[in-house]
């Protein structure tokens, strides 16, 4: 019996994930060997402890929530190439909508895979081009005392302000508790690293969202 297209996609996807995993781990390994600079173990473990709980739980949430929407081929490719929420997911949804195919159908699977693959190629090309073009001007832009320096000192407030506003219109009620929790934590522990702050604000945010969900459910009842 011939294997279905879906079965084949899973085989290709699994191979692609394993190859990418090896390739990705090869990058820091190559850097370490090339520079002959092994990372200090306590610092490395502390850094990992700060990000792994959050990142790995988000990975579980994302796998469960995105994969059913965009289909298998697109999911394998999206998770390999990244930038899912801000790029691959909207691309796949827009392409399926304009081709008038249903998510979950084989036609939907084909169209969303094509959309995500095209987007991944375009992003890689644009970023490569960007890295080459930015290189000569970079030192002038970021040097201390340059008029442009404040822009780079304030890049995080600019980036996260725009990101927050993206969620504010639909979820403004969810934003108060985590921001307040973060500010309070910083008032009591001013030197708190952002890596320690993140689990606090995320847990407060998830608890707030769960409470809001229950409250809404009661209102509907």
């Amino acid at each position: 019996m011939e294997r279905s297209y879906f079965d084949k996609v899973h085989t290709w996807g699994r191979i692609s994930c394993v190859l990418t995993l090896l390739m990705l781990l090869g990058v820091p390994l190559a850097i370490t060997l090339h520079l002959n600079a092994w990372p200090p173990l306590p610092g490395l473990l502390k850094g990992l402890a700060a990000v792994l709980p959050m990142f790995w739980s988000v990975a579980v949430i994302e796998t469960l929530s995105y994969a059913p929407i965009i289909g298998s081929g697109a999911a394998y490719l999206s998770f390999v190439t990244g930038n899912i929420a801000n790029l691959k997911l909207p691309c796949a949804i827009a392409a399926m909508k304009s081709a008038n195919v249903r998510p979950g159908s084989e036609e939907g699977e084909v169209i969303s895979t094509i959309a995500v693959a095209s987007s991944a190629i375009a992003t890689t090309a644009l970023l490569a081009l960007g890295a080459l073009l930015l290189l000569p001007v970079l030192p002038f832009l970021t040097a201390e005392g340059s008029p442009a320096a404040p822009a780079f000192q304030q890049v995080l407030p600019a980036l996260f302000g725009a990101l927050l506003a993206g969620y504010l219109r639909r979820h403004w009620r969810l934003s108060f508790a985590p921001v307040l929790a973060g500010v309070l934590a910083l008032i009591f522990a001013p030197t708190l690293q952002v890596g320690v702050l993140i689990p606090i604000t995320v847990i407060v945010s998830l608890l707030g969202a769960q409470a809001y969900w229950k409250l809404q459910g009661q209102k509907i009842k």
Partner: peptide, 26 residues
Amino acid sequence: PWTDLMGAAAFIGLIAAFVARALAGQ
């Protein structure tokens, strides 16, 4: 709807840490 809400809440939580730092970080 629940998956959407929790996904959004996780992202908002992450963003909130940086927003709080811009408001009150040392």
